[in-house]
């Protein structure tokens, strides 16, 4: 009963939930699955709360918060992308409100959102590329250390092949690719976690 929105999301084909806290369901996604999941969550009439990024040892973690106007419950999408290739597809074609949020992430971290209509600086001076929220190596913490429940980092984003290519493809291509290549290791892990949390 309490987790009905989680079931709904799971049923809609959004990759399985990895972590359920009080009123919050976290979904760890691969960047190529992101657009697909965002499209589904828009169909479920969720609204976008925010998009934020944070810097970890394993890479940049993008966090998308969604919530519903009528029902309680917050859905969190997490996408981890590597430092070397900070690219992720832009969700601005579904949620136009993300345009500014993504520009802000680019300002602060230098992340590139492929498919974004206009990635110019939003809050910082346009002449310089400051990326003030990037952390130095000393103060960076491990993502796994802080979020032990999220198993995504077991398979860090492959440097060249999937990650980079995934960013530049259109959503349709990605969807077909996903079906063809079958489930990756990450998603299997996710399934197990969902079961774990269900038992708990």
């Amino acid at each position: 009963m309490k987790q009905s929105w989680v079931d709904q999301l799971n049923a809609a084909g959004v990759p399985k939930c990895t972590e359920v806290r009080k009123g919050v369901a976290c979904f760890c996604l691969e960047s190529q699955n992101l657009l697909d999941s965002v499209r589904k969550i828009l169909e479920l009439e969720y609204y976008l709360q925010d998009v934020s990024a944070s810097d970890f040892q394993e890479g940049y973690l993008l966090t998308y918060h969604f919530a519903h106007f009528e029902e309680p419950g917050q859905a969190v999408f997490r996408v981890l992308i590597s430092h070397e290739h900070p690219q992720v597809p832009s969700i601005s074609s579904f949620y136009q409100g993300a345009i500014w949020h993504e520009q802000e992430c680019t300002d602060f971290y230098g992340i590139e959102f492929t498919g974004h209509p206009d990635l110019k600086p939003l809050l910082l001076v346009p002449e310089e590329n400051l990326c003030p929220l990037r952390k130095d190596a000393r103060s960076k913490k491990s993502f796994l250390d802080i979020f032990p429940d999220c198993k995504l980092v077991e398979a860090p984003p492959p440097p060249e092949s999937e990650e980079n290519a995934g960013g530049q493809e259109s959503p349709e291509e990605k969807a077909s690719k996903k079906k063809g290549s079958g489930k990756s290791k990450v998603q299997k892990e996710d399934d197990e976690t969902a079961q774990d949390s269900g038992q708990a």
Binding site: L42, E45, Y46, Y47, L48, Q49, D50, F69, F94, Y95, Q96, G97
Partner: peptide
């Protein structure tokens, strides 16, 4: 409402 949803208006 649809617009509000897409932009996250609250």
């Amino acid at each position: 409402v649809d617009m509000a949803r897409r932009y996250g208006v609250t």
